[in-house]
Nucleic acid binder design. Structure first.
Length: 214
DNA sequence: CGTCTTTGACCAGCGC
DNA sequence: GCGCTGGTCAAAGACG
């Protein structure tokens, strides 16, 4: 799984899979749709910390559909987002007509919501042997589909944080099998767990040294 | 035993 | 209406 935390900085020349939480300004390879902003090596500076914390409106390889439609670089509000607890409700454990009706209503509501809500999407292409980009968050896989024009399946992941509704899709390019396309949908409403894990001991050490010097 | 992945089924949207 | 495709659900199984 992706629950590894590399100690060393990402080795050149192969590009990431480097966890953004290790280096917020890490240079990622060409994001889709950002070709015009790239330098000759196809690199682009990305402020990962801002993007992942939701403090940036930066669009990186924004999904083409959204570019062509009415995409707004907005952070999805708490009440606007899908609450899985409210929308996933209605498990059919009875069999009464009312319950079934409510169940169907909930399903319908959820589908409409999912269709309606425009969410920020960021798409990255990374050159990696691993399909899973360790971005510091915890993900649960909820589906995998064979997609057209690709010999590799697309995997669907959801952030495991209970209040967070961010999803990501991971797919390997059939044209260039060394490239993994990761599409993030939505913005995390909680801090990056691994970032905190990494920073906490450091902060404690700094505090300790500060008290010593005083 | 809790968490996570796998995988077949289901559904909606879309084009014909 | 029908078939295709993409996205999601949920039961079952694997794993630590």
């Amino acid at each position: 799984m992706e629950n590894h935390l590399p100690v060393d900085p990402p080795p050149p020349p192969l590009l990431p899979i480097s966890p953004p939480h290790q280096n917020p300004n890490f240079v990622f390879p060409a994001p889709v749709g950002a070709a015009s902003q790239l330098d000759p090596q196809g690199m682009l500076d990305i402020d990962w910390a801002s993007i992942l914390s939701g403090q940036s409106n930066m669009q990186v390889g924004v999904d083409q559909d959204i570019v062509n439609s009415s995409y707004k670089p907005m952070v999805e509000g708490g009440e606007g987002g899908l609450s899985s607890s409210s929308l996933m409700g209605g498990i059919n454990n009875g069999g009464s007509e009312d319950m079934e009706k409510e169940n169907n209503n909930n399903k319908e509501k959820r589908r409409r919501m999912m269709k309606k809500t425009t969410r920020p999407r960021f798409e990255f292409q990374t050159r990696s042997a691993d399909d899973i980009l360790d971005d510091g968050y915890r993900w649960r896989k909820y589906g995998q589909k064979a997609v057209k024009n690709s010999i590799y399946p697309r995997s669907y992941y959801r952030c495991t944080h209970h209040t967070c509704n961010v999803k990501k899709q991971v797919q390997r390019l059939s044209k260039d099998t060394s490239i993994v396309v990761t599409t993030y949908e939505g913005i995390h409403n909680h801090p990056c767990e691994k970032l905190m894990e990494t920073l906490t001991p450091l902060l404690k050490q700094i505090q300790f040294l500060t008290t010593l010097s005083n």
